[in-house]
Amino acid sequence: MKTGRTWWRPDGFLVYAVAYLVFIYLPVLFLPLFSFNNSKYIAFPLKGFTLKWYQQMLNSPSMLEALMNSIKVGLIVALLSTILGLMAAKAVTRYRLPGRGPVISFIMVPLVIPEIILAISLLILISQADIPLSLWTVGFSHLLLCTPFAMLVLVSRMEGFDRSLEEAALDLGENSWMTFWRVTFPIVLPGIVASMLLTFTISFDEFVLAFFLTSTDATLPIYIWSSLRFPTKIPAVLALGASIFVISFFVVSFAEWLRRRGVKMEATSRI
């Protein structure tokens, strides 16, 4: 009885939590809803079930090309920014760097520069250097944007890392390279995965830098933006959005599972 009553009392926090979830997820749920709606117009009432938008999506080479461009740039950026972030994180957590504080803030600056400023300055720099705009220039700008995020994730992971584990591996006969592979890497792996996911996502949906720094190769956000002028293309965009939503759901769940495993491991590395 008692527990039942507490359940039903409109707890302020509960109301807030529900409102928050509705606010976040309701708009997202419109995506799959309208992607199955048999109408060109995104409006109620619904007209009936169809898969034709998904078909159209698969038959739209320019959309798929934009998707592939975004994935390519995202993967390369995720990999490179995580490697850079890992090295930076190792440097600031392991070595007594002179001027450690200023160095960290310097690396973190791109986090707080408005993207539009970053985009314009890069555009100026790149055109001054006579480098043709392409997906490479987009990738470069994303690398700049993502590395501080990677570093943030990895520093927090490495700060809890017990230094004597690496010393133990050295002591047991491994050189520093094998120590990295057999001890550091597996323990930091959850952080690496988290960093790759985060940086991939940032690059994948980044618009401003991509818009300024690409030439004819569109990334997905740019393609979607340009589709808005053609209402017939929009339902297929919804279908694509719904697919991406489902895929990211599984990827993020996997990452969360990895992270939990990591937390458990971390708990045991202390006594």
Binding site: E167, A168, E174, M265, S269, I271
Partner: peptide, 16 residues
């Protein structure tokens, strides 16, 4: 890694 000694650390440093 090439010294003929081994150490037991104060916190044991068991690989988690």
């Amino acid at each position: 890694n090439h010294r003929p000694v081994n150490i037991v650390f104060q916190n044991y440093a068991i690989f988690p």
